[in-house]
């Protein structure tokens, strides 16, 4: 692994990404979403005795940033190397898959963290809560980072990344709706959404020890997607042998 090469790849990606229309639309949507969540957070409606709330402050913003921004940007900028037929050239330039993954991930995480920071400022988080919130967000961000990379591995172009990505986003936000409403579904505890919401609640209350317990399930999900990604990489390596 060559740190100099990773730095050069990051520099090039920054020069390129500012002209990338798809990424810019995603970023603009994310900023719009921060404002929308801020407004919609105050509203909900009742069906019989159940209260339905779609968005819940930072946990919902984190869900949007992870599923929409991280997964899409990571998937898109990785698959573009294949779509633009530049991957082969990079391989000839001794760039390894790990170096490329780290360079792309650094860009994606930088954008995601920036958006979360803006959202936390909008939601008037204190400095300590911002730090705690960003650290608590990392497993979720990594989970979708691996998912985005996995999407890029299975896709030939950015259209396929969008095609395969949409079902994941829809399922994630369905779960988000269930978590934020007072429907009593135990199964929801298996998914990271529930834990993220609970964790942020405890962070805001300053109960750090309890909040840290809710990071375990998101970490397990991140590990699961990392293992799936690793499996796919191993399969690709064997195919190329």
């Amino acid at each position: 692994m060559d740190v100099r090469r990773i730095r050069i790849l990051i520099q090039r990606e920054f020069q390129d990404i500012i002209w990338n229309g798809q990424v810019m639309i995603v970023l603009f949507s994310a900023l719009l979403m921060v404002g929308t969540v801020y407004i919609l957070n105050q509203f909900g409606f009742n069906v019989d005795e159940y209260e339905i709330v779609f968005f819940n402050a930072i946990p919902s913003v984190l869900g949007f940033v992870s599923a929409f921004v991280v997964m899409y940007i990571q998937g898109n900028i990785l698959v573009e190397e294949r779509e633009h037929r530049t991957l082969k050239v990079l391989q000839l330039y001794k760039v390894s898959r790990a170096e490329l993954f780290l360079a792309k991930s650094a860009i994606t995480l930088f954008i995601a963290m920036g958006l979360l920071l803006v959202a936390m400022i909008v939601f008037r988080y204190e400095f300590l809560h911002v730090v705690g919130g960003l650290l608590f967000s990392l497993p979720m961000l990594f989970m979708f980072l691996f998912l985005g990379t996995l999407l890029a591995e299975y896709s030939k172009n950015t259209i396929e990344v969008s095609l395969y990505g949409w079902p994941i986003i829809i399922v994630y936000f369905m779960l988000e709706g269930i978590v934020n409403s007072n429907l009593n579904v135990n199964l929801i505890k298996v998914f990271p959404n529930f834990h993220v919401t609970q964790g942020f609640d405890y962070i805001l209350r300053g109960e750090w020890a309890t909040a840290s317990l809710y990071i375990i399930i998101p970490i397990l999900w991140a590990v699961l997607f990392y293992l799936l990604l690793k499996k796919k990489w191993n399969a690709s390596d064997q195919q190329n042998m």
Binding site: Q15, D16, W19, N20, H84, T86, K88, V89, L92
Partner: peptide, 15 residues
Amino acid sequence: ELFIYSPDMGEYPRL
């Protein structure tokens, strides 16, 4: 250790 040119190699279109 080699240089390879093939017509199916591309460039970054926005650079």
